[in-house]
Design a protein around this nucleic acid. Structure first.
Length: 435
DNA sequence: TCTGGGGTCCTAGGACCC
DNA sequence: TCTGGGGTCCTAGGACCC
């Protein structure tokens, strides 16, 4: 372990719950949970909520049953807020790091190719205090000669106050000590299945795993596990992820209610397809295959179940909202069966190519039309960015029908979010006023 | 009444080709 | 009685991550 290359993991503590607390300091020290889309189940918990025994994935309706009389602050997800605050965290990391890669919404890797003259622990302590000061987000920082050990170090930074939010593993002694205290299921790259198998063989901490002979790992597991094993032993071998554009994009949601008519399904699926097209344009790619899946409510044993998937291949790859929505509608028509009550649908786009200089097909080539669509999408994106998403949509994204008393009801892509906090930092109307 | 969403990589087996 | 062998591509399923 005398490597000169080091990695730091910077991880927001209980990210979504912490975001909610930034503008609600009265909730510091209290149990806070954040719910998934449609207020379905718990996806994030503050430390206090975890200590109470609230499990990730607990359906919201069970919360009151399982914790009667307990005060729990509940929030619907507010991705606009989380995206903005974590973006600010990333901006500070970027400013104070030689080279970094955002790994997820709440996490980044920092790469040190040469640590000569750098006091790594001091660097981490400073970064932590800056993020706390400028954004109000608590983070944990783990630093080690490879990513697996850095992730482990960040756990220690998070759970032991003595580290003051930054844990550095820079010697074999520290590495082994940490491994021996670290449950095997917490190791990065070891999921539920592998952990259960290891526990059955009486391997319960990371040190026991690291001390198995390599041939044993190879014979019982795969190459991924072998890399993890090597990293636990101090080698640096998990490849750096390149920030490549996505190979597939998927937008899917459960509906707030069950749906039994195709008109309403069209509205939802159009919205998901339009989101896919936007995402494609954002990363400058185009897709040649559009797919749609549809399913009934799998939790309702008492109802007939049905699910299906269909896809369409286009002659020319596209990222135009109109084209993608049109393809998705054809897929939906192909799999929709009347007589079922549907609960979930999704749109996926695959087989992507760079969006500029798209390979056109001789049979499908209509440069004038393509250029029109391209300009249209560009304009729509611009307006929606300025005026708020979904200011301009295609007609099928909205569904109008008459209620019993003859009033017109306009139905768009509804998501339940009963407990959503304001968009404090991204909308003028939601800005906090001080008196 | 109410049960999330979006990705990646690896492997084994089948189809197909020469 | 006795099956060729080697390569590629695609797909489905499993496992993992956040």
């Amino acid at each position: 372990m005398n490597s000169n290359r080091y990695y730091a993991v910077v991880d927001c503590d209980n990210c979504f719950a912490s975001c909610e607390r930034v503008f609600r300091p009265d909730l510091v020290g209290k149990p806070v949970v954040v719910l998934s889309n449609n207020d379905g189940c718990v996806v994030a918990r503050s430390r206090e909520a975890k200590q109470m025994g609230i499990k990730a994935g607990t359906p919201y309706f069970k919360l009151a049953q399982e914790f009667p009389g307990r005060k729990i602050a509940v929030f619907s997800s507010n991705y606009e807020l989380y995206g903005d605050l974590t973006g600010r965290v990333m901006a500070i990391i970027c400013r104070e790091s030689p080279h970094y890669l955002r790994y997820s919404i709440d996490e980044a890797f920092v790469f040190f190719d040469n640590t000569d003259g750098i006091d790594l622990r001091q660097w981490g302590l400073t970064l932590h205090s800056h993020i706390k000061q400028y954004v109000g987000m608590p983070v944990s920082i783990g630093i080690a000669p490879n990513k697996t050990l850095a992730k482990m170090a960040s756990h220690f930074a998070k759970h032991y106050a003595g580290y003051r939010h930054c844990c550095l593993i820079d010697s074999d002694t520290k590495r082994k000590k940490a491994l021996s205290l670290f449950p095997v299921e917490e190791v990065w790259g070891i999921g539920r299945r592998h952990a259960a198998k290891l526990r059955n063989m009486n391997i319960t901490n990371a040190l026991q795993l690291a001390e198995q002979p390599e041939y044993w790992i190879k014979s019982h597991y795969n190459i991924v596990m072998q890399r993890t094993w090597r990293e636990l032993n101090g080698e640096d071998c998990v490849p750096d992820e390149v920030a490549a554009s996505k190979k597939s994009i998927c937008v899917s949601r459960s509906f707030p209610d069950m749906i039994d008519n195709i008109e309403q399904l069209r509205t939802y699926v159009s919205n998901y397809a339009a989101r896919c097209a936007e995402k494609l344009r954002k990363q400058s790619t185009a897709a040649s295959v559009v797919g749609v899946f549809l399913s009934t409510n799998q939790f309702r044993d008492d109802l007939p179940q049905y699910g299906n998937f269909a896809e369409r291949r286009m002659l020319t790859p596209s990222n135009s909202t109109i084209t993608i929505v049109k393809q998705a509608m054809e897929c939906l028509n192909a799999i929709y069966k009347p007589g079922y009550r549907y609960k979930k649908a999704g749109v996926v786009v695959i087989s992507m190519e760079p969006g500029v200089g798209i390979q056109t097909n001789l049979l499908d080539y209509n440069p004038e039309h393509s250029e029109k669509l391209r300009r249209l999408d560009k304009t729509i994106d611009k307006i929606n960015k300025l005026e708020g998403s979904e200011t301009v949509i295609v007609a099928s994204q909205q569904y109008q029908h008459k209620s019993a008393d003859g009033k017109a009801i306009v139905f768009a892509d509804a998501i339940r979010h009963e407990f959503r906090s304001p968009h404090y930092s991204t909308r003028w109307t939601d800005i906090i006023e001080l008196h």
